Every structure is written in structure tokens, then in C-alpha cells.
Simulated scan of single mutants.
Amino acid sequence: MPEITRDEVAHLANLARIDMSDADLDHLAPQLSVILESVASIRGVAGDDVPPTSHALPLTNVFREDVVTPSLTAEQALSGAPEAQDDRFVVPRILGDEQ
């Protein structure tokens, strides 16, 4: 597999909008090449008869029935609130006007 050049790392950093120094580019190019070589070697081990898997053991989701059950009314839920308004909890504002 061809090595990743410094210019290719700079191009990838530009696409990802990551500002990298010249020292970072020189440092990362050989590391990315080693990573790609490792992935290529693993890819070569798996044959066509080995199915790709994401987990070693099969996983199954357990779902419960979606049944409507009795719950609190708005008045009951807000009964212990320090402050309520229009059937909602009133909480201190944590974000400024920048949002």
C-alpha cells in the first residue's frame, strides 16, 4: 500500500477544517501510513468464507409491549415544584442570548 504523503494529510486536515502545523503534518503522515498498512493486513486475513461481524456474539434486543398505563396528571407532577407556569416547570435560565 502506498504511503500517505504530507500533502495528503494536509488535504485531509483542510477537508476536516483542522488547523495543523508543519510539525503535526510531518508527524502524522507516517502514523497514518502504519494504520492503513495494519488495516490492509487484517483485510487480507479474512477470507470470503468468513462473514463480517460487529460483535463476537449475536445480540438480540428485548422489547416490551407498548402499553398505555396510568400516570401523573399535570397538577400532580407540578405539585412539588418550587415554581410552575402554564403547566410547566419554571427553571433558571442557563443560556444567554447567544442561542
Rank of each mutant, 00 (worst) to 15 (best):
T53P: 00
H55T: 15
D19Y: 14
D19W: 15
A46D: 15
D7H: 11
D7T: 13
P58E: 15
H55K: 01
E8M: 02
L25V: 02
G47T: 12
A13E: 00
D22R: 14
V9A: 14
L15D: 05
T53F: 07
S38R: 09
P2A: 07
G44L: 04
L15R: 00
R17W: 14
L15G: 06
S54G: 09
E37S: 11
L12Q: 02
S33T: 12
A29P: 01
A40K: 04
A46E: 13
P51L: 09
I4A: 06
D26H: 03
L15K: 03
H11E: 13
H55V: 12
D26T: 03
T5L: 11
A46R: 15
L12S: 00
P2M: 10
M1D: 10
L32R: 03
S38F: 11
H27D: 11
N14M: 05
S38A: 02
R6T: 15
G47V: 08
V39R: 00
M20W: 11
Q31Y: 13
I35Y: 06
I18N: 12
I18P: 05
M20D: 00
S33E: 01
R17H: 09
P30Y: 01
N14G: 10
D24Y: 01
P2R: 12
D19I: 11
V50K: 04
T53Y: 05
E37N: 07
P2C: 08
D19C: 13
R17L: 14
R64K: 10
L28I: 12
L59Q: 07
L15W: 07
I35H: 05
S21E: 04
A29D: 00
I18W: 10
V45G: 04
V39G: 00
A10D: 12
L12P: 00
N14V: 02
G44Q: 05
D49L: 03
D48T: 10
S54T: 11
V34A: 02
F63K: 11
L32M: 13
I42Y: 01
T5A: 09
I35V: 07
L32Y: 15
L36F: 11
A13R: 00
R17V: 13
F63D: 15
T5F: 14
T60W: 08
L12H: 03
D22E: 15
D19N: 14
D7S: 12
R64H: 06
N14W: 05
L28T: 07
A56F: 12
P51S: 03
D22I: 07
L15F: 01
E8Q: 15
I4N: 02
V39Y: 05
F63R: 10
A16L: 04
